[in-house]
Amino acid sequence: MVIEFKSKPSILANGAVAGPLEKKSVFYSYFDSIVEDERWNEKTNEQGHSTMILDACDIVMKKANIKNLDVDFFLSGDLVNQMTPSNFAARELAISFIGLFSACATSVSSVIIASLLTELGASQLAIAGAASQHNAIEKQFRYPNYYGAKKPATAQWTVTAAGYALVGKHNPEYPSIVAATVGKVVDYGDTNPFHMGGAMAPAAYDTIVAHLKKRNQKFQDYDLIMTGDLGKIGLKILKAMFAQAGVTPEELQLLRDAGAEFYGEDQAFQAGASGAGCSAAVYFSYIIQQLKSGRFKRVLLCATGALLSPLSFQQGESIPCTAHAIELTME
């Protein structure tokens, strides 16, 4: 389902924070702050996760020179059970809050909801975004952090990062959200939790095709189409899908993936980065800055999410995936 925003809500401020390991990220210099302790000096990983979200929101509010009372809505999500890190951060922020779960696509789905609230006139200022903390997610979805299991080359590394954006009324000096696509849930029967890119690629394909079709656009209409966390192999698969559909290699150069690029060519991270914080931190730092600087005029951000749980996987269910997209422009 494609939504076109007549009021063109703008992203008035953005903030991205990351953990110590993310110094290895190629996007490192775009992040607002790096914290040396992956637990944000808290006792548990989950508390650290929550503090990280607060940290990112504080940066957003500081940049916009506002206080939490000025913000109407807080829309956030993460991957921990029942999204407690977001819930606890919302408790501290004391802003009207809706928790969202679209797995790693939450970075975009939250901005879509914020834009809708803005368009509706219900919200003057809303903070939207997502976060993930490696240890907490690894523990929940895979093995204990110190368990020595061989992960295949298709495995991805959950990042410790948070990215948040302040969505408000249209302002020509800032990047604006002109359209969005809420993705369907696509399931091609993949069951391997160490090959998320392969499971998510069809969802990204589905959403991008739907968006371009409804908006009557082509690849060349964009400076960049960036998916969330397909990883190196997932991105290759997505490109192959588009190539089969007749997209030329030159056009495919416009297609990039935040997860595939996040850690550069470092082999230790296998197929690249993943996690709700991966797309959020890249979108709400690097992409927004590139838009503001005028290097990009129009971008399509398509965050992908694998909607599985350890339980569903163990019960033999396949991995349903979704992808949400927003189209950002800079005048």
Binding site: L21, K24, E38, N135, E138, P144, Y146, F269
Partner: peptide
């Protein structure tokens, strides 16, 4: 004694 940390390499 120990606390888990996320180290890649």
């Amino acid at each position: 004694i120990f606390k888990p940390k996320g180290k890649a390499n």
